[in-house]
């Protein structure tokens, strides 16, 4: 099928099969390797992207669902050479170890902040419940989201 959609503010027109998964379109057709596959069944959250501003698993979407939609991947967060406050906060708060969950974790947090600019710890925990981090105990991640909320992370 002919797929027209927006990825990281850029219009894209692709010829893909209708059942091709969004994660594969992003990685194989667009070379956006920041979106990670951890389980392929919506359990781990590593492949989380923003679809029209909401966090969603890109492994569970297919091309047929994407026409006219607006996708933001981890590569789309940095604006004018400046990291998003969430990205900076994850670095500063030492919220990264192996980094494989990081893009999905940041995008789930982004979706939260877009909806709720000043979340409580409980709200952050709930928003990140679908993103598995095996390295940490989530402490630094939660702290990073709290910091980003204070430092303007709710804007896009």
């Amino acid at each position: 099928m002919r797929l027209e959609f927006t990825v990281n503010d850029k219009k894209r027109v692709l010829e893909v099969s209708a059942d091709k998964r969004l994660i594969d379109i992003l990685r194989e057709d667009l070379g956006l390797m920041g979106t990670k596959e951890g389980c392929g069944e919506g359990e781990c959250g590593a492949c989380t992207i923003l679809l029209d501003g909401k966090a969603i698993h890109s492994c569970l979407l297919v091309a047929a669902q994407m026409s006219g939609r607006n996708v933001t991947t981890i590569e789309g967060l940095e604006k004018n050479g400046k990291l998003d406050p969430l990205q900076s906060a994850f670095v500063e708060e030492v919220a990264i170890q192996c980094g494989y969950c990081t893009p999905g974790m940041i995008l789930s947090a982004k979706a939260l902040l877009l909806e709720n600019p000043a979340p409580t710890e409980t709200e952050i925990r709930r928003a990140l419940a679908g993103n598995i981090c095996r390295c940490s105990g989530y402490t630094q991640i939660i702290r990073a989201v709290e910091r980003a909320a204070r430092e303007g992370g709710a804007a896009i």
Partner: peptide, 10 residues
């Protein structure tokens, strides 16, 4: 971690 900035950028 040494590659933290690469990891947040994906």
């Amino acid at each position: 971690i040494h590659d933290a900035k690469a990891k947040v950028r994906g």
